[in-house]
């Protein structure tokens, strides 16, 4: 790509599966933390329950509200974190959550090329493909080919904008509302919204 007269450090190991060694280290750390009284097994259970309570249904409720309420949509696009909290959801400890509005001329898609940063308070845990080296490497290099593999075929005059979630912020794609849903209730709309559309690899299809 560009000329180099300097050596590069080798890339860090990138295997998403924990090694046996790290798995055992994690178990040992957990047992020591409990044995020394820093946390209790109940604390750990509550943390896991909280993590598992975060699902894409939260993001879908935010999207559906934005579809039916133009004033809310404007607040969500201007200050994502505050607008999410306004609905009673915990937006997490991020300085902001950037809401990316898809339009007829612009399609947004989110990746973390460095690891697996993901809007967990809104979508829960990231899917395996989001963490895969292939998705992370390819979606910034050939986004249209990756989107096509997810069934998202975009016209040439639609700009693709890739968002690399490399640091402190988190991102939620506000998908296009499908045609034919003008009379739908907010709840019915929320049921239509799917996780992949809020990451930006898919679109929301009509009912």
């Amino acid at each position: 790509m560009h000329d180099h007269d300097h050596p590069h450090s080798p890339p860090q190991p990138d295997d998403p599966e924990p090694s046996t060694e790290h798995h055992f280290l994690g178990l040992a750390l957990r047992e020591l933390l409990i044995e020394k009284g820093h946390i209790t097994a109940d604390d750990e259970r509550r943390m896991i329950e909280r993590i598992e309570s975060q699902t894409p249904a939260i993001g879908a409720a935010v999207v559906a509200r934005a579809w039916v309420d133009p004033a809310y949509r404007a607040r969500l696009l201007a200050h994502g974190r505050d607008a999410i909290a306004e609905l009673g959801f915990n937006p997490g400890n991020y300085p902001d959550i950037i809401v990316l509005e898809n339009t007829a001329r612009l399609h947004n898609v989110v990746v973390c090329t460095l690891c697996s940063c993901y809007p967990r308070p809104l979508l829960g845990r990231p899917p395996a493909w989001y963490k895969s080296a292939a998705y992370r490497a390819r979606v910034v290099r050939e986004p249209r080919a990756v989107l096509a593999e997810f069934g998202t075929h975009l016209a040439a005059d639609v700009e693709v904008r890739v968002h690399d979630s490399t640091a402190e912020l988190r991102y939620l794609v506000l998908p296009l509302r499908p045609a034919g849903t003008e009379d739908w209730s907010e709840d019915a709309l929320a049921a239509l919204v799917n996780r992949d559309a809020m990451v930006g690899v898919a679109q929301v299809r009509g009912g």
């Binding site: 950037i98 693709v160 904008r161 890739v162 968002h163 690399d164 402190e168």
Partner: peptide, 24 residues
Amino acid sequence: LYRVRLGLRDLWLGYAGGDTLDIE
């Protein structure tokens, strides 16, 4: 911390079109 926008054609040889990257 900044969000910075770059053109994909400025990142990759042979990338045609106006697609973009926003990065922190």
